[in-house]
Write a protein that binds this DNA or RNA. Structure first.
Lengths: 232, 232
DNA sequence: CGCCGTATTGAGCGCTCTCAAGCTAGGTGG
DNA sequence: CCACCTAGCTTGAGAGCGCTCAATACGGCG
C-alpha cells in the first residue's frame, strides 16, 4: 500500500482539483461544505473499482496509480475501453445510462478519490462557475483515443506511446516511462494481439527509435515516432 | 432547399429541445430570453458547416438531414469521426480546445440550428436544472461508436447497421431505411475499404439477412444481425 | 529452486487491402 | 428520346498485414 505521508502531490495536477479542497493529511473521509464528499480508496493490483451494470453513484478521480476499463464481449474477449492515470477522471460515460458500462480494475497499487455524483451535481448547482470546467473536462474525453482509427498497427502503437508519454508525465513530456499495463492490455486497447505489440516494439528498438528494458521504454527519436504515428 | 412549412417536427425529438423554445414558423433567427439564440442554416449536399482549427463559437443541432465529421491525415486519407442525424448535437469536442477539431459537411440537404456556446453557457448558469440534461447528453456521446473496437469487419458493419436503424428512426426502431452516406464514408468510419463494405452487404443479402436496393436497406433477420455484431 | 504468468520469436494461414475491370443510376446535351 | 458521361457500387484475383498456434525465454514470488 502506498505510503500515506506523500501529502497527495497528485492533487496539484488533478483535473478535478477545482472541485476539491485539498487536504494534506489525506484522511479517508473528507467532507467539505456538505457538497463534494470524497472517500479515498486504496486499491491493490487487479482489485476491482466497479462492475458493469451496477448502479452509477460515483465519479472517481485517480490520485495515484492506473486503472483500465473494459468489458467482456459475447465471445469472451476483453475489450479495453480506456486507461486512466493520475489526475484523470473516470465515470462520465455512466451518467447517461445511470449504470456503469464497464469494469474498472487497478493495474497497480492505486488511490482513487470517490466523488458521489449527487454531491457533484449539487456543487455544480451552487457554484455555476464550475460548469465551464466540467464542460471542458468532458469535452476533453470526447477526443481521447482518436488514434485508434489509424490504419496500421505501427501507427496506432506509436500514437499510443506518445499519448502515454504525455499523460504519465506530471509536467511536460517524458522521454522515458514505465508501462503501467501489460502487452496484452495494450493489444486489446489498440485492437491488436500481444504478439503484434511485441514484434513492433522489437522492430522500433532494432531501428534505434526506442530503447526497451522490460516495462521501461526510452524514446531515442521521438520525432520519428511521431512521423510514423501520423502516417509518414 | 427543404420546404419551410414543415412546422419543424424534428424539434420534437431533438435532444437539445429542453434548451430551446419551439417555434413552429421557423424564422431564420430565433431569440429567446436573450439566452439561446438559434440561427437556422440550410445546407446543400457537400456544403461545409465548419473547418478544423477555426475558432469554436457554436454548437449545432441537426434539425433535418445528416452531417459527417472528419479530418484528413498526413497521408491524405479522410478519417471519419462520426455521423450526426436529426435531433443530434455536434460540437462538444471543440469545447476543450476552443477550436473545431474536424471538418463537418452535409451528406444531403440539411438544416442545422446554430447555438452560440456563450449563450448556451449563460443559459446553463441561469437555469441550473438544465445541467443534468447537458451532463446526460455529453455522457451519451462518450459511449458512441463503441462497436468500432469489434474485431472483424462483419461485426463492425452489422453493429453500425443496427446503430443507424435506431438513430435514423424518430420513434423506436426501423426495419428499413436509406443510407445517408456513401459506401466510402461507411468504410472510412469503420476502418474498412468501400470494397469490403460492398462485399459484406452482398454476403448478408445472399444469406437473406437483409434486402438491398441501392441506398435502401431492409432488415429480414434483425436478431441474426445482432448476433453477428455481438460476435456470435 | 521450481512454478507460473508474461514476453518474445517463429511459421503458416486468413482476412482485408490493393488494383483493376465491369456495372448501374443519374445527369447533360444534342 | 437517346447517346454519352461520370460517380459510385459491385465483383474478381492476388498480395500483405496481422492473427493463430506453438515453442522458448524471462522474471517475480512462493
Amino acid at each position: 500500500m502506498p505510503s500515506q505521508n506523500q501529502k497527495h502531490a497528485a492533487c496539484n495536477w488533478c483535473t478535478f482539483s477545482p472541485f476539491c479542497i485539498k487536504n494534506e493529511d489525506g484522511p479517508l473521509l473528507v467532507k467539505q461544505e456538505n457538497l463534494v464528499v470524497k472517500q479515498r480508496h486504496y486499491l491493490k493490483r487487479k482489485e476491482v473499482l466497479c462492475f458493469p451494470k451496477t448502479k452509477f453513484r460515483n465519479l472517481y478521480a485517480i490520485q495515484q496509480g492506473a486503472i483500465k476499463t473494459f468489458h467482456i464481449d459475447a465471445s469472451g474477449n476483453e475489450l479495453i475501453r480506456g486507461f486512466y492515470f493520475s489526475g484523470e477522471i473516470l465515470g462520465y460515460e455512466a451518467i447517461y445510462t445511470g449504470r456503469y458500462l464497464f469494469s474498472a480494475v487497478a493495474l497497480s497499487e492505486t488511490i482513487v478519490c470517490e466523488i458521489p455524483y449527487e454531491n457533484f451535481v449539487n456543487l455544480l448547482h451552487s457554484r455555476p462557475e464550475l460548469q465551464n470546467r466540467i464542460l471542458y473536462l468532458m469535452s476533453q474525453q470526447l477526443s481521447a483515443g482518436f488514434y485508434l482509427a489509424s490504419a496500421t498497427a505501427e501507427q496506432r502503437l506509436c500514437a499510443f506511446l506518445l499519448d502515454l508519454s504525455t499523460r504519465l508525465s506530471t509536467s511536460g513530456i517524458l522521454q522515458e516511462f514505465l508501462f503501467p499495463m501489460s502487452r496484452q492490455d495494450i493489444g486489446n486497447y489498440l485492437m491488436l494481439t500481444p504478439e503484434t505489440i511485441s514484434r513492433i516494439l522489437s522492430k522500433l528498438q532494432k531501428n534505434k527509435l526506442i530503447e526497451l528494458d522490460q516495462k521501461k521504454i526510452h524514446f531515442l527519436r521521438r520525432k520519428k515516432i511521431k512521423e510514423i504515428a501520423d502516417g509518414l
